[in-house]
Simulated scan of single mutants.
Amino acid sequence: MPFWGLQKQLGIDVDSFLLRQSMPQPHGLAAVCHAFEREWVECGHGLGQTRARRECQLEYEDFMECMQRTKLTQRLRLILEQRDRMIKQGKYTPPEHHTGKEEPRP
C-alpha cells in the first residue's frame, strides 16, 4: 500500500480497468459477479501469473461462468432440443399459453 494515494490525488485511474466488476456501479450497488471476481483476485494475489493460473483455475471458471453464462446456455439448449424431440415423437404437447393459441387477455 503506497504512503500517498497519488492516483487518487491526481484524479487518474491507471489499473482499475483490469477489474471489471470492481468499478463503481450505478446507485452504489455491487455488480452481479463481484463476489466471484473478488475470490479470483484474492486467490491469485501474490502467487504470480504461472502459479495463479494453475491454482486458481476453479475460481476463474466460476467468474467466467458468471460473466458469460456458457454452461447455462448449453444446458438450456439441451433442454429445448429434448422438448422438440418429445414433441416430434408425440410424447409431449406444450400448453396453450406456450404456443400462442390462448385467447388474448384484456
Rank of each mutant, 00 (worst) to 15 (best):
F17A: 09
F17Q: 04
L18M: 14
P24S: 10
P24A: 11
P24M: 12
P24G: 10
G28C: 02
G28K: 07
L29V: 11
L29M: 11
L29E: 08
A30P: 11
A30W: 05
A31L: 09
V32T: 12
H34A: 11
H34T: 05
H34E: 11
A35I: 03
A35C: 06
F36H: 11
R38C: 02
R38K: 12
R38Y: 07
E39M: 12
W40D: 02
W40H: 07
V41Y: 04
V41K: 06
G44M: 04
H45E: 01
H45F: 09
G46A: 07
G46C: 04
G46P: 01
G46V: 03
G46T: 05
L47K: 09
G48A: 08
R51D: 04
R51T: 02
A52M: 12
A52C: 15
A52F: 12
R54G: 09
E55M: 08
E55S: 05
C56Q: 12
C56Y: 07
C56R: 03
Q57R: 14
E59K: 12
Y60V: 08
Y60E: 14
Y60C: 10
D62V: 07
F63N: 02
F63V: 04
M64F: 13
C66D: 07
M67F: 04
M67V: 06
M67N: 02
Q68S: 09
L72W: 06
L72Q: 06
T73D: 11
R75A: 15
R75Y: 15
R75P: 08
R77F: 15
R77D: 13
R77Q: 15
I79P: 00
L80G: 09
L80F: 15
L80E: 15
E81C: 06
E81Q: 12
Q82P: 00
Q82S: 02
R83K: 13
D84W: 05
I87R: 14
I87W: 05
K88M: 04
K88V: 00
Q89Y: 07
Q89N: 05
Q89F: 03
G90W: 03
K91C: 01
Y92A: 08
Y92S: 05
P94F: 01
P94C: 04
P94H: 06
P95H: 09
P95A: 08
